[in-house]
């Protein structure tokens, strides 16, 4: 019994020593100036990763030219609208159609060219998309009519269909590690 107690006491003191040494290690870490440089570098890399996530995040914009009713108000579709987001090329969106456009980042600028009362008009609007939003539906008639952003822009929730497996495009070095794939 006393042997067991001494074993536990030894184990306890060993764990205690390790904790103390770990604590001393942390204290020493914060006492040396180079540690702050290391810590700063790690934080800078994490910061860079966060920036890259927001900058590179791709959003799909569905540019919709359909008649739509929002909050009891109807917005009629236009004959033809040319639209571009950021620096992409203009795409022509005829009545009752929907086109998609992929862009990265959160802040965007949409430029619309359309004909109203026989006059060609241009509308430029800046907007932001939440990072979590994958597909965004933009109702062009509502946007042109001057509706609120929450009315002309909404998240488009699509039901993902099962995707078939694609054949792998490989380097023509492709083979199993043992090379047997090619032999048989």
């Amino acid at each position: 019994m006393s042997e067991n107690v001494s074993v536990f006491a030894k184990a306890g003191s060993s764990i205690k020593a390790k904790f103390i040494s770990f604590g001393n290690g942390i204290v020493t870490f914060f006492k040396t100036p180079s540690s702050y440089v290391k810590l700063g570098s790690v934080l800078a890399i994490i910061g860079l990763a966060i920036v890259l996530f927001f900058v590179g995040k791709e959003h799909q914009f569905l540019l919709d030219n359909n008649t739509i009713e929002i909050n009891g108000k109807s917005y009629s579709s236009l004959n033809l609208v040319s639209a571009k987001i950021d620096n992409s090329d203009f795409i022509e969106i005829p009545r009752r159609t929907r086109m998609n456009n992929f862009q990265t980042g959160q802040s965007h600028k949409i430029t619309l060219n359309y004909i109203e009362n026989g006059q060609e008009k241009e509308l430029v609007t800046k907007f932001k998309v939440p990072a979590s939003e994958k597909n965004t539906l933009i109702s062009l008639p509502a946007l042109i009519a001057g509706a609120d952003q929450s009315e002309w822009m909404s998240e488009f929730l699509s039901v993902q269909a099962p995707v078939p497996d694609e054949p792998a495009v490989e380097d023509d070095m492709a083979m199993d590690m043992d090379g047997m794939d090619m032999a048989f």
Binding site: I45, L48, A49, L52, F53, V55, G56, K57, E58, T104
Partner: peptide, 18 residues
């Protein structure tokens, strides 16, 4: 999966791999 594309995507993948 996060749909981060282009060079920012590659850089982010590199940071995750570190």
């Amino acid at each position: 999966d996060w749909q981060v594309v282009g060079i920012p995507g590659l850089m982010l993948a590199a940071i995750i791999s570190i």
